[in-house]
Simulated scan of single mutants.
Amino acid sequence: MPIKKHKQTAKESSAQYVLQKVQPALLGLMDGSVSTLAPLFAAAGLTHQTHKAFFVGLAASLGAGISMGLAEALSDDGKVTGRGTPILRGAITGFATAIGGMLHTLPFLIADIHVALHFAYIVVGVELLAIAMIRYKFMKTPLWSTILQVIIGGGIVFLLGIWLGTLGVSD
C-alpha cells in the first residue's frame, strides 16, 4: 500500500513560518534591543561623547549579533524540532540582533550628546513597542501583557545603563 504524503495546510505553513523565521528574528530583535542598552547608555553617560558611545553601541551590536547567530545555529539542527536549517536560523537571529542593537545606536552619530540621547530614548521606546506588536501578531500573546513585559524588561536594562553612566562621573 503506497504511503500518502501529508499535504501541508495553510495553518501548518503559517506555524512553520513563525517557528523558522519569525521566532528567530524576534529573538534577535529582543536580544539586540535590550542587551546593548546598558553598555551604550553607560558609555554615553560616562564619556559625554557621542562618537565614543556610537562605537561602543556598534561593538555591542555586532558582537551580540555574531554571538546570538552562532548560539542559535548551534543550538538545534532542526531535525527533531522542525525549526528549520541551523544556518538560516542563525543568520536571521544574528542579523536581527545586530539591527536591534544598531537602531538606538544610530542617533549617536549626532554630535550633540543631548540631542543624540533624546533621539535614542525615542528610538528605544519605538523598538520596544514594535517588539511587543510583533509578539502580539505572530506569537498570539495578549497585547497589553506583552507591552508590559517588553517595556519592563527593556526599561530595567535601560535604567541600569543610565545609572552605570552616572557612576565615575565626578563633574
Rank of each mutant, 00 (worst) to 15 (best):
Q20E: 14
A43K: 00
I122D: 10
Q49S: 03
A53W: 06
T36E: 03
M139K: 12
L37M: 13
W144E: 03
G57K: 01
G100C: 10
H114K: 12
V157N: 13
A130T: 11
V18E: 12
V124N: 00
L160E: 04
G57P: 00
M102G: 11
I87E: 09
V150M: 02
V124Y: 03
T81G: 07
M133L: 13
R135N: 09
F55L: 08
K140H: 12
I110C: 11
L109K: 12
I162W: 09
G69W: 10
I151A: 01
I152T: 12
F119G: 05
D31T: 14
V34P: 01
I87G: 05
T50F: 02
Q16C: 07
A96F: 08
L159W: 10
K4D: 03
A96T: 12
R89G: 06
I151N: 00
H6Q: 08
L167K: 11
L164A: 06
F138N: 09
D31V: 13
G45Q: 01
E127F: 01
I87M: 13
A132F: 00
A111V: 14
A60W: 01
S170I: 10
H51A: 04
R89T: 08
L62G: 03
L58C: 04
G32A: 05
R135P: 05
A44K: 01
M133F: 09
I113E: 05
G28A: 09
H6T: 07
K52F: 11
S13P: 04
H114V: 07
V34G: 08
K137S: 07
S145A: 07
S14P: 03
F138M: 09
T146M: 04
A59I: 02
I134A: 03
G101F: 07
K140Y: 10
F119A: 12
A111H: 14
K79Y: 11
Q23W: 15
L74R: 11
I147D: 00
A10E: 15
T97H: 11
G32V: 06
P2F: 04
V34I: 14
G65M: 09
K21D: 07
M30T: 08
L40D: 00
M1W: 08
A44H: 02
A25L: 13
P86T: 10
I92F: 09
L74S: 05
K52L: 12
F55I: 07
P86L: 06
I156C: 08
T81A: 11
L159V: 13
Y121S: 04
K137L: 15
G28R: 09
G168I: 08
W163D: 02
D76L: 14
K140G: 06
D112H: 15
P24H: 15
F55Q: 05
L46Y: 03
A25K: 08
A91C: 12
